[in-house]
């Protein structure tokens, strides 16, 4: 389920700004404005937090701490955030975060998410 190709996301992601999308990948994290970063931190802590816990220690969804994510490839985690995991409660967030933004979220999660 996490093995969707980038192409599939592209087709399913009409809301993404195309140039932005091509410029970014999970590895090369884009420049996000401070305001947008603050919004994403709020989204992750509060709205992802309803399943993963506000401290990201896990809940109905698994922990999203650096230790928990250490050995997981960033691309597949980005795919999970954008596309969700069918058959589980993890929903697709592509309406609300671009793939590039999901890349930033995953990078921060793996490094230790800002408060």
């Amino acid at each position: 389920m996490t093995k969707q190709s980038g192409r599939t996301w592209l087709k399913r992601a009409p809301l993404l700004a195309a140039p932005f999308f091509f410029a970014a990948s999970a590895a090369a994290v884009p420049e996000l404005s401070a305001g947008r970063r603050a919004e994403l931190v709020h989204l992750v802590r509060q709205d992802c937090g309803s399943c993963h816990g506000m401290t990201l220690q896990g809940g109905l969804g698994p922990a999203l701490t650096p230790e928990a994510l250490r050995d997981k490839p960033a691309e597949s985690l980005v795919a999970t955030v954008v596309g969700g995991r069918p058959g589980t409660p993890m929903p697709p967030w592509r309406q609300f975060v671009s793939e590039a933004e999901a890349g930033w979220i995953v990078q921060e999660l793996q490094a230790g998410f800002p408060p």
Partner: peptide, 9 residues
Amino acid sequence: EEKLPVFKM
């Protein structure tokens, strides 16, 4: 029917 995504249980 197709289900809509559920962003909170």
